[in-house]
Computed example of a mutant assay.
Amino acid sequence: MPPAGKWARTPSHVGATFRAKALAVDQRRNMTDPERRLWRSLRKDLPEDGSHFRRQVAIGPYVADFVHLGARLIVEVDGNQHGFERQARHDEKRDAYLANAGFEVLRFSNHDVMRATRSVVDTIFAALHPSPPTPYPSPRGGGEARASRSSSQQPSLSGDVS
């Protein structure tokens, strides 16, 4: 019988394999220095409103480093092994599985997390809160309206005057 309580009903664990769940527990206990640094920054530097991350979450046969379930966003901290072809193929397969499950995956190297933590957190924040597109033409009469006014004031190339 599965354990009772909110953790037993966590949507991220639905469909997670036993192996992935066990690995997630182990990885939570043994985070790397870059993972620990990013976890502290996610908890400290991101505004609390709408930025709840979980760490080392089992999703299907995989373990995601950090997951925001509400935004369906996964943040991965990649070590040096991710530069090799075999690992890159595994990452592609894994990313395809996670995308099919409705997640967007952001990847950062250990180096980026250790050397530019603030930039990494800013990128994550931007993914959580995308800016709306700028309207075109602009509401103050710029953009297309301004371009058409200036082109009507210039002589045409054929020599005809409008």
Rank of each mutant, 00 (worst) to 15 (best):
residue 150 S to L: 05
residue 108 F to E: 03
residue 153 Q to F: 03
residue 6 K to W: 15
residue 143 G to H: 04
residue 56 Q to T: 02
residue 100 N to V: 10
residue 157 L to D: 12
residue 8 A to N: 07
residue 41 S to F: 01
residue 122 D to Q: 14
residue 130 P to W: 00
residue 112 D to Y: 09
residue 80 N to A: 15
residue 153 Q to S: 09
residue 121 V to H: 09
residue 11 P to N: 05
residue 53 F to H: 08
residue 64 A to K: 13
residue 80 N to Y: 08
residue 43 R to T: 06
residue 7 W to M: 13
residue 148 S to K: 13
residue 121 V to C: 08
residue 133 P to A: 03
residue 84 F to Q: 08
residue 2 P to G: 04
residue 129 H to P: 09
residue 159 G to E: 02
residue 29 R to K: 09
residue 39 W to H: 13
residue 106 L to G: 13
residue 35 E to Q: 06
residue 146 R to K: 02
residue 157 L to P: 08
residue 139 P to H: 10
residue 69 L to T: 11
residue 60 G to N: 06
residue 52 H to W: 12
residue 158 S to I: 03
residue 113 V to E: 02
residue 57 V to G: 06
residue 69 L to I: 10
residue 27 Q to I: 04
residue 136 Y to I: 13
residue 31 M to P: 06
residue 141 G to D: 00
residue 83 G to A: 14
residue 127 A to Y: 12
residue 140 R to F: 07
residue 6 K to V: 15
residue 116 A to L: 00
residue 158 S to C: 02
residue 142 G to S: 04
residue 142 G to W: 01
residue 18 F to R: 10
residue 158 S to R: 02
residue 144 E to Q: 10
residue 102 G to C: 00
residue 104 E to D: 09
residue 131 S to R: 14
residue 144 E to L: 14
residue 113 V to A: 04
residue 96 A to N: 11
residue 88 A to C: 04
residue 106 L to A: 12
residue 156 S to R: 07
residue 84 F to Y: 11
residue 49 D to W: 11
residue 101 A to N: 01
residue 122 D to A: 15
residue 146 R to F: 08
residue 117 T to L: 13
residue 96 A to F: 11
residue 26 D to H: 00
residue 117 T to V: 00
residue 16 A to H: 09
residue 101 A to P: 01
residue 90 H to P: 00
residue 40 R to G: 05
residue 54 R to W: 11
residue 153 Q to P: 04
residue 54 R to S: 08
residue 55 R to Q: 09
residue 104 E to W: 03
residue 40 R to F: 07
residue 135 P to H: 13
residue 8 A to I: 00
residue 56 Q to E: 11
residue 145 A to R: 15
residue 43 R to I: 02
residue 123 T to F: 06
residue 83 G to P: 00
residue 133 P to C: 03
residue 36 R to A: 10
residue 155 P to H: 04
residue 143 G to I: 03
residue 138 S to F: 12
residue 7 W to E: 12
residue 92 E to N: 02
residue 116 A to G: 04
residue 6 K to C: 14
residue 23 L to G: 05
residue 14 V to E: 12
residue 64 A to R: 11
residue 3 P to N: 05
residue 37 R to F: 00
residue 155 P to E: 00
residue 63 V to D: 00
residue 58 A to W: 03
